[in-house]
Design a protein around this nucleic acid. Structure first.
Length: 642
RNA sequence: GCCGGCGUAGCACAGUGGUAGUGCAGCGGUUUUGUAAACCGAAGGCCGGGAGUUCGAAUCUCUCCGCCGGCACCA
């Protein structure tokens, strides 16, 4: 005799067990029609599943966020049924809902092709039209395993075998087809609707392990209605226009070619952006009490052996030898061991701590070919790296300072929001458990003091210590780690870094590895996508173009250019015998933030007509005014703050 | 690295076995123009590299390289 409490606080009594469908029907036909799932004491369930005990409930309709997830999950089931009916012999595995849609991983000798999509989608529409109810059954474990094995579904059987012993084996039927699934599901396949689209095929390892067979994954997107679907597809197109690889080409910022895979040729304009960013970072570091150093690129293998990198990561290192010398050198994949060498040079006193050693360090890593991505994941890159040598007592304070610095930098560069992940000890690591306990606890405590909220990212730390990762998102929603802060009690030990303490004995410093941008290459990639190439004036690769209307105004245009250049702006003239419309268009497409137009009038009056990127208006200014205003505006945010 | 797709002029693309094309950019002219594309002309190609099939290959096959989408990896 369950008593059901509704969201408005009212209580309804029922005779015997009831289902969500019964409860909705008892409230009214409108709700019975709209409710697609029920939340029972905070747990989402199928409408048809009985509620045996007293409970607080809430109905979920198509408008609720939970609905979207269920639509996507159900779409995955419908996809699986469609594929198995069209391609007999295909084995099913798993098919979850994901951001913006769903996927399903299949095992089949022949992979699917995008050309198969129309037929699969067609079949999916038929299944949805048939509107078969999703019905839940629970099966005995052995029976379920036998059932799937008899059908040749070895992946499903393996999944069931690996489920915890006390877990219920639930099976969902939709018409003739069924699948192992935890649920919950919508009422019937018809609830999926028609706002879905298959997007792409991809390979994916079974259970995410590269030693396992490769499955074919079909990705789809699914929404509540056609309008949402259209909006999403439109947004994808917009995102493609922001792609840093495309903008890099359009704006002539950089290129990469076969002879230097994973390494960037920075063109003049891209390098202007790069150096503006580097200058800014250098000032920020100086203000924050860092000292800048520079260490070698090629370092003897012996140092990497001592640091522990040689044994664990030499397959990711570029190694160099010369004929006349029996030595093996490696391009540094990171700067830390080199910084320790500087720290170790001479005796260090506790009075020097915390010692913040920064380097724009050029590093090389042999990254797997498949992981390379534009300038975001490369093999040669420059980190805004620094190592803080300090005492354990100083970890918290240094963390607070670092987070404050990073937050300011990100904000200055246009990033108000970013995610923070806390990654702890990985399986393969250096250092005793005791040392790890200590460094993880220290970093956690520092986060509390700094008021840092993070997501927990188990087992993803560096081999020498736990880390905070600061994650930014690119135009199409891919996450990239940029900033990082890592606590390291291992390397100072391995490389014998020490300082003389107050007690005149030798002590081991703690090393904090930290970066804000991460790598210039990756960060600039994200920066390009964030701004869609329309940079604030201080970062713009070409800040101003002075365009003449008639050739008589050309000498004056050059004069304007000279004045602006003298004021430190990056500026170009355009005195070609073209129409002003063409020039405006060309430089607008090139995303030049300011166009100064000069014709006879301006040449005579000593003025310029200023036009902003994206705007349609023009502002008439005297040349002096323009120079003053633009040079003020072109100041980096930290300089403007004074 | 793995699965799939792709690679044609500086860029964007067309070309499914029979003499390599279009648009834009660039170059040479003409046009002196007032805020998002003036007009004319001549150029420009080892059709990613190599091998094979064929009388004949951009086109079919194999292989290598690179890029793209995922997966795995990311000290």
């Amino acid at each position: 005799m369950p008593a059901i409490t509704l969201p408005d606080g009212s209580v309804r009594q029922f005779d015997g067990t009831v289902t969500g469908t019964d409860i909705a029907a008892s409230i009214g036909p409108g709700l019975a029609k709209a409710a697609i799932a029920i939340e029972v004491d905070g747990q989402l369930r199928d409408m048809g599943r009985p509620v045996e005990q007293d409970a607080s409930i809430r109905f979920v309709t198509r408008k609720d966020t939970e609905a979207l997830e269920m639509i996507r999950h159900d779409a995955a089931h419908v996809l699986a049924e469609a594929v198995q009916s069209l391609f007999p012999g295909t084995q099913v595995t798993i098919g979850p809902s994901i951001e913006n849609g769903f996927y399903y991983d299949f095992y089949r000798n022949e992979p699917f092709k995008p050309e198969d999509f129309p037929a699969i989608e067609q079949r999916m529409h038929e299944i949805i039209k048939a509107n078969a109810s999703f019905t839940r059954e629970t099966w005995p474990r052995d029976e379920a395993i036998k059932f799937f094995e008899d059908r040749g579904e070895r992946f499903k059987a393996e999944l069931i075998r690996d489920l915890p012993g006390d877990e219920e084996i639930s099976i969902y039927r939709q018409g003739e087809w069924l699948d192992l699934c935890r649920g919950p599901h919508l009422r019937s396949t018809g609830d999926v609707g028609n706002a879905f689209k298959l997007m792409k095929v991809a390979g994916a390892y079974w259970r995410g392990d590269h030693r396992n067979p490769m499955l074919t994954r079909i990705y789809g997107t699914a929404w509540r209605d056609k309008k949402e679907l259209e909006a999403h597809l439109h947004q994808l197109e917009e995102a493609e226009r922001r792609d840093h690889r495309r903008i890099g080409k359009e704006m002539d910022l950089f290129h990469i070619q076969e002879e230097a895979v994973g390494q960037v040729f920075w063109h003049a304009k891209g390098w202007r952006l790069y150096t503006a960013l580097q200058d800014y970072m250098r000032r920020a570091q100086t203000r924050a009490g860092y000292e800048e150093v520079r260490t070698p690129q090629l370092v003897d293998r012996a140092l990497w052996e001592a640091s522990g990198h040689w044994s664990k990561y030499r397959h990711h290192m570029f190694v160099a030898t010369v004929e006349d010398e029996d030595k093996t050198l490696a391009l540094k994949p990171m700067n830390c061991p080199c910084h320790v060498q500087i720290f170790r040079h001479g005796l260090r006193s506790y009075r020097e701590l915390p010692l913040r050693m920064a380097e724009f360090g050029a590093c090389h890593r042999y990254e797997p070919s498949g992981s390379l991505h534009g300038i975001m994941r490369v093999r040669g890159f420059t980190q805004d790296d620094a190592h803080i040598f300090c005492t354990e007592d100083q970890i918290a304070d240094e963390t607070v300072r670092f987070v404050a610095m990073l937050t300011e930098v990100y904000k200055d560069l246009g990033f108000e929001h970013f995610r923070i992940k806390f990654s702890d000890r990985p399986e393969q690591r250096s250092g005793s458990d005791e040392v790890w306990d200590k460094s993880e606890a220290a970093l956690k405590r520092a986060c509390e003091i700094a008021g840092v909220e993070y997501e927990y990212n188990p087992g993803e730390g560096a081999f020498y210590g736990p880390k905070l990762e600061f994650v930014l998102r690119d135009a199409i929603g891919r996450d990239w780690q940029c900033g990082t802060l890592q606590v390291d009690l291992v390397l100072p030990e391995r490389l014998d870094a020490n300082y003389i303490g107050e007690d005149s004995a030798r002590h081991r410093p703690v090393m904090l590895h930290r970066a804000i941008l991460g790598s210039f290459e990756r960060f600039i990639g994200i920066l390009i996508e964030q701004h869609a190439g329309k940079f604030p004036l201080w970062l713009a690769p070409m800040q101003v173009v002075v365009a003449s209307i008639v050739s008589d105004a050309a000498p004056y245009a050059e004069e304007v250019v000279a004045r602006l250049r003298k004021a430190g702006l990056t500026v170009e003239s355009d005195t070609r015998a073209d129409k002003i419309n063409a020039k405006i268009r060309e430089h607008s497409v090139a995303r030049v933030p300011v166009i100064l137009v000069v014709g006879r009038k301006e040449a005579e009056a000593g003025t310029v007509a200023m036009r902003r990127l994206g705007g349609a208006d023009q502002e008439m200014l005297t040349l002096d005014e323009a120079v003053t205003r633009l040079s003020e505006e072109a100041k980096a945010p930290d300089i403007r703050r004074g």
